[in-house]
Design a binder for these strands. Sequence first.
DNA 1: GAAGCTACCGTAAACGTTTACGCTCATATC
DNA 2: GATATGAGCGTAAACGTTTACGGTAGCTTC
Lengths: 367, 367
Amino acid sequence: MRGTAIPTEANDRLPDASLRRKPTINDVAQIAGVSFGTVSRVLNNAPDVSASTRERVLQIIKDIGYRRNRAATALVTSRSTSIGILSDGSPRFGPVGTLMALENIARKKGYATTVISVEKPYEESVQAALDTLDDTGVGGIIVIAPLVDMAAAVWNASCRVPVEMIAAGASSTPNVFTYSENQELGARLATQHLIDLGHTDIAHFAGSMDWFDGRVRKRGWEAALSDAGLAPGLCIEGDWSPRWAYETGLQLVREGRIPQAIFAASDHTALGLIRAFAENGVRVPDDVSVVGFDDIEGSDYFLPPLTTVRQDFTALALMSTDVLIGAMEGRGVDRTPIAPTLVIRNSSTRATSHSSSPKDPRNGQNT
Amino acid sequence: MRGTAIPTEANDRLPDASLRRKPTINDVAQIAGVSFGTVSRVLNNAPDVSASTRERVLQIIKDIGYRRNRAATALVTSRSTSIGILSDGSPRFGPVGTLMALENIARKKGYATTVISVEKPYEESVQAALDTLDDTGVGGIIVIAPLVDMAAAVWNASCRVPVEMIAAGASSTPNVFTYSENQELGARLATQHLIDLGHTDIAHFAGSMDWFDGRVRKRGWEAALSDAGLAPGLCIEGDWSPRWAYETGLQLVREGRIPQAIFAASDHTALGLIRAFAENGVRVPDDVSVVGFDDIEGSDYFLPPLTTVRQDFTALALMSTDVLIGAMEGRGVDRTPIAPTLVIRNSSTRATSHSSSPKDPRNGQNT
DNA sequence: GAAGCTACCGTAAACGTTTACGCTCATATC
DNA sequence: GATATGAGCGTAAACGTTTACGGTAGCTTC
């Protein structure tokens, strides 16, 4: 008789009566023949309760399926066992990977996570999101802030609970501690790999400078080059998209200025780039070595399989939750940044003698 | 003096002392010169408060930055404005897309989301997760259950609050309502597209039958074929991975039994497949048409750009939150499944007369 | 055998709301 | 002018915990 196809009748096959009203600490106490205080003590495994009593109470708790009411606990202790995660809404590889890892680790440490995402303009949405999170009673907040704008909004916002930001290469402030994977190192690794292969003309298809990731990966590329005494190669800044990389790659082909090697700021960038080359008979890696960044699913099956940099999101989540929980408990925790690793596959190869003169593109014609 | 364009001085403007201790309903009442009851009434915009009083209280609330303590509210009302999301931990395209969309839509409807992910073995972890979610005070739960095993665990679990499951093609039970995108239709669309192109020998590189998505996409392929009066082509079941598709593709090439056209159960599957073909001079789409499923980022820049099926996660999220919130409020809500759309790109093309004899593979040699 | 200690346990108050109820005062009603 | 009515407001109790404190019984210690 209720609406359509909706199991409102669900409530007929009720979870048995015992589930209907949640048992409270008093129910447990009564059955155990002790006071609620004692039950509370075993719940928080505090001292001052005999082994036998503890045992009995525990058994009863299990039997009747008692579970602590978080709201009541939160109300009286005003500390909580949940942490908030603030993310930009983007389904991009890095942010999502971080998010999933964070949830996973937090849960294993006994914290629930409530996530909320924000949109432009950040100035308003970030403060509102922080407030909402605070309202729900989180004890601390981790912000996944790949975008510089978003980070700025976080710096300007105020919040009662500790806030930690995951933003590559950004600096900490008194209010918000910043942590991240060492992506600059990742970029250096990639570039150094190209240098080790004998390349001297190494370009960078950069990501967006609106992103920390874009900035810091570019910085790593520059640093590796300068450390090796190499002149900075061509650098073009884009927006991470395959489309942009494709079109820019096309342009390079047209103008005949294909470098020996390219460090692409992301695998998606590499993907577009490689297509532009493939369509014009420029062979990867024979004519140009390409390395990406991210190790997205499938990058090992690109044509050719892509040399790239892999970040360890689990380690990042482990560390950053440590830091946040430390802050929530008033302890300081120190952690060093995580180091990404280089994954060498087929898209990069040793520089050939002739290709060291980067002047002749299109040496192979349309496959 | 700090790094790059970063407003560190932001933190001098520290959260003022007033933020230190949260103001309560009593603070508001005292300032307004009314009792806390009156404040509560304006908070819940209940009747029985004069316009002028209401006005004044509202102003004070804004002035001192009062915000309701959710824990206290939850404790006394035992209803909440947050919904739980249960997901498998996988960072796969479908589940993540659904998750992000869900958070987004729920937030816009005024619900916070707390997400938790589960791992094998599901029988235990699902019930535990449901309980945890219940503990945190969610009013309802949406389960993203791509895996058949996981769904079974949900069916067997018990939960006080309404549970809705997103599982392609699975059926509802009295306890849990099931909703999904019409992936079978998506698969039909893909297969029909191949049929329209004149292909008669259409194979399916299926996903895992442990997944609803795998089952239902296969079913769509079968149905389209049978509706068209075509004999079912080759069907091989895999695990979604590029690696499996690559190796299986290699085997097909070796055995010389390459079909006219292939419907791959996912873009990643298509990716591996195409690489196996490309490495052996089998051209896509000239020698074999391939269509994928998912429209992952970058699939438009595969070699060649991939014809595929796109799901509308936002619409899915919209509908399924409607349904859940309806259930939470005791209303029934009816929604019809979302229809995916076909995205036609370059990996599929008209059947050529000669290729209608699928007997000669390797007609083009290594590019 | 009194004093003191310890181990164990009970009790009251508090956390910040909502809800049900009751009170007061002005106004309408006859 | 007594009575009913209702608008506006205050009050008490409850939600399920935790925490601080107090109490009792048994044991040690001299």
